[in-house]
């Protein structure tokens, strides 16, 4: 029953996204613009940004995540459908899971573009051999982003100035994800290949995901409990 509900909700979000193409396209474009701005902002047009590649990647992904997460309940809110979901016998944790999976898919779609671009734009030295390790890092970080993002977007949903509230709530919580994501990427990309460092950061991301999963499961009932 829960599996059927979860599948139906995820399918609904993907169908809406496929039909309107609002979120993913905007996220990808935003991420590319971010990378370009960061390049010029750092002002080293002839310099070597390999050292900063991990950081640039995760700063970009963090801000792109805020953009995507901000869209996560837009259809429900603008078309006023939320009551329909809430009056159905759906455990709130299933709503949480479905939104988190949708965010995860959006982030993965963005990373398919961003991770190779970072290699092309910024890294001088070995990169493509490590792409698998970077992908694992990204997937772990995506779980963190999806869980924290779903919780905070639920909180921001019915506040005034919600578009402003979400980044204020979400970005401080993302600092550890950026630190660990950048650290893990840095450990394996362009230069020294330090697997123990990579493992340390990835374990941290896993711990983050577990902790936020527990908090979300424990509190999500209350988010929609008017």
């Amino acid at each position: 029953m829960r599996g059927r509900q979860l599948a139906a909700l995820v399918r609904k979000d993907l169908r809406l996204e496929l039909r309107t193409r609002e979120t993913i396209v905007a996220m990808v474009l935003f991420a590319i613009v971010m990378l370009v701005i960061l390049e010029f902002g750092l002002g080293t047009r002839d310099g070597d940004l390999t050292r900063f590649a991990g950081g640039l990647m995760w700063v970009t992904l963090a801000f792109t995540a805020v953009l995507g997460v901000g869209r996560s309940y837009v259809a429900e809110r603008e078309q006023r459908v939320l009551d329909g979901l809430l009056v159905a016998p759906v455990p709130r944790v299933v709503l949480l899971g479905a939104k988190a999976i949708a965010i995860l898919i959006y982030m993965a779609a963005v990373e398919v573009v961003v991770i190779p671009l970072v290699g092309i734009f910024f890294v001088k030295g070995p990169y493509w051999d490590s792409i698998g390790w970077i992908a694992i890092t990204a997937l772990l970080a995506d779980v963190c982003i999806a869980l924290a993002g779903t919780l905070f977007s639920g909180l921001a949903l019915f506040t005034r100035a919600r578009d402003l509230i979400l980044p204020v709530l979400f970005l401080p919580a993302l600092v550890p994800v950026v630190i660990a994501g950048a650290g893990a990427t840095h450990a394996v990309a362009g230069g020294p290949h330090d697997m123990s460092e990579w493992r340390g950061y990835c374990l941290f991301l896993a711990a983050y995901a577990i902790l936020f999963a527990l908090v979300s499961v424990a509190t999500y009932d209350a988010v929609f409990d008017d």
């Binding site: 139906a8 609904k12 809406l16 039909r19 259809a75 078309q79 006023r80 459908v81 329909g84 009056v87």
Partner: peptide
């Protein structure tokens, strides 16, 4: 066991009529 008809139709504008009902059919099992 509750059927609720609100001011708003509580359906997604960008899904077809059938897709909306499929969603709710799955939510209610």
């Amino acid at each position: 066991g509750i059927g609720y008809l609100a001011h708003d139709p509580l359906v997604y504008l960008d899904l077809t009529a059938r897709q909306n009902l499929e969603l709710y059919g799955d939510l209610y099992g």
